[in-house]
Write a protein that binds this DNA or RNA. Structure first.
Length: 491
RNA sequence: GGGCCCGUAGCUCAGCUCGGUAGAGCAGGCGGCUCUUAACCGCAAGGUCAGGGGUUCGAAUCCCCUCGGGCCCGCCA
């Protein structure tokens, strides 16, 4: 990789030739450029084999393919709007310039062109080129023109090559960004305030997960990267902000697999004076809108259309306990002891540690018996109290909390509750988790309990993984396909 | 953490079963061609077969180890 290949030597020689002619192979700017769609639109009115000399255009993009045909050459130029065929002719450019350009241009070069709209005799919208400008010489050649970059490892390690070689990959990440924009617009329109809370924390809490650890030279002590946004955001509601949300990175010190990334983008939203029924309506509305928007943004994609069907409201609802008892045939689950639940989880094939909490064993049973049958976006509601230390107890179902999760086939999309607002009960829940001495306990955040003593209004909150939401909406099977730069081992 | 599979030219892939000194297409070089769409035709060039060790007269091919990756399972909301 450090060695220069013969191909690169050739291309460096072309750069040298360029400079020797007094031309800059890496110029500073290219003013007046329009995207290729503008020229294609201008071509729409033209008959095959004709051109419109009255108006000239300037385009710029990456050179994909040259089809040289003697004294005419066809060049495919690609930009974010799609691309355009350039027609180079000896008659337009002159013998010498024509030869020089074809000698010095390679696939992968960034090229600007001035010319007029023209439609080829075969009907291809084109720019009949009057002059060309090299915008950046590519020393390393791009992947093969037809198959592109196939090597999965290379696609992840050098995402820029994956992107430049594949319009589909570019479109996937463009759509992701536009969907996040849509989410912001949804919450903004409901008068939620977008806020930013600390990533560096003294104790990472709000979820059961191993944190990344770092160190502050200034404080002279260890800090942890956040594993959730929840506790700082609820403090803001204590402070009177009433409706807040944050979209940001959370970090969990765990493996990467098809649905987990050690760093992932998390949306959390908290809504005072509302409960989880309200949040459920909000969520259904958001998902319906996102599914519709995705189809708009990326039409004619079967994966997207199939995914959108799974987002058709109203979403079906499963009661956690009823569904689990029905699917497993095990009655009165809430009356089982931790030891009994552990045995049941073992029987269902789970190998979680013996010291796991009651809630973890229940989660494992649910994963085993119920999750595989979920084939569309589904609300799962009213979890056992033991699974959920930060949610308020259910107003009518004993032993449960007011909580829903949204499941897509294969993974969880979101998790929401009516928030626990009683400081003493919160203290007790943190302690009882620690009392079980599980590795999966939430870290006790004493300052958070203190905040609750000032009074948190009745509140509902939700957390959702944006990467997984993008997967579900675009029909992706791996979270790596939703991340621009997934974590990879250094080589 | 366990199992299975993969790593050959810049890129996409053959060759490995059954050991005999590395092959194609694209890209690049040279030549031809004024409407192509992965243009086409001809010629020449391009390799640490992931890395290391072993077996063998001889290893891309067989064996072991290491590195990197993929899929499944487990763990992690």
């Amino acid at each position: 990789m450090d060695e220069e290949t013969p191909l690169e030597r050739e291309r460096r020689a072309k750069v040298a030739r360029w400079r020797a002619d007094g031309r800059e192979p890496y110029p500073w700017s290219f003013p007046g450029r329009v995207d290729s769609g503008v020229v294609r639109a201008a071509c729409a009115a033209l008959a095959p084999g004709t051109e419109e000399p009255a108006r000239s255009f300037r385009v710029g993009g990456r050179l994909k393919i040259v089809r040289q045909h003697g004294r005419t050459a066809f060049v495919d130029l690609e930009d974010l709007a799609g691309g355009l065929q350039l027609i180079l002719r000896v008659d337009e450019l002159g013998e010498e310039a024509y030869r020089a350009w074809l000698a010095d241009l390679d696939p992968g070069d960034l090229v600007g062109a001035d010319g007029i709209a023209a439609v080829s005799r075969r009907g291809e919208p084109s720019l009949l080129v009057r002059s060309l400008t090299l915008l950046a010489k590519a020393i390393t050649p791009p992947p093969e023109k037809y198959h592109g970059l196939q090597d999965v490892e290379e696609r992840l390690r050098r995402r820029y090559v994956d992107l430049l070689a594949s319009a589909e990959v570019r479109e996937r990440f463009r759509v992701r960004t536009l969907l996040v924009r849509e989410i912001r617009q949804y919450f903004d329109a409901l008068d939620f305030l977008e806020v930013e809370t600390p990533i560096l924390q003294t104790v990472a809490s709000g979820a059961a997960a191993a944190p990344f650890v770092t160190r502050s030279n200034y404080l002279g002590r260890e800090l942890q990267l956040r594993i959730a946004e929840e506790l700082p955001l609820k403090r803001l509601l204590v402070g009177g902000l009433e409706r807040v949300y944050e979209i940001g990175r959370a970090f969990r010190n765990e493996d990467l697999d098809s649905t987990h990334s050690p760093e992932f983008t998390e949306l959390e939203a908290y809504w005072a004076y509302a409960d989880y029924h309200d949040m459920r309506r909000l969520t259904e509305g958001l998902y319906e809108r996102l599914a519709r928007r995705t189809v708009e943004l990326w039409p004619d994609r079967p994966e997207v259309a199939r995914a959108a069907e799974r987002f058709q409201p109203p979403f079906p609802t499963l009661d956690f306990v009823d569904a689990l008892e029905a699917a497993s045939g095990i009655p009165r689950l809430l009356e089982k002891s931790r030891e009994e639940l552990r045995a049941l989880a073992r029987a269902a094939g789970s190998t979680v540690p013996d010291n796991s909490s009651t809630g973890t064993f229940l989660d494992k049973l649910f994963e085993h018996y119920v999750e595989p049958s979920i084939d569309r976006v589904t609300f799962v509601v009213d979890f056992p109290t033991a699974t959920t230390p930060l949610a308020k107890r259910h107003r009518s179902k004993p032993g449960r909390v007011e909580r829903f999760e949204v499941f897509a086939p294969g993974f969880e999309l979101a998790n929401a509750y009516t928030e626990l607002t009683d400081p003493d009960e919160q203290e007790e829940r943190f302690r009882s988790q620690l009392g079980e001495r599980g590795d999966d306990a939430y870290a006790h955040d004493a300052d958070f309990v203190e905040a609750l003593r000032y009074g948190l209004p009745p509140t509902t909150g939700i957390g959702m993984g944006i990467d997984r939401l993008v997967m579900a909406l675009l029909g992706l099977s791996s979270i790596k396909d939703a991340l621009l730069f997934p974590l990879v081992r250094s080589r």
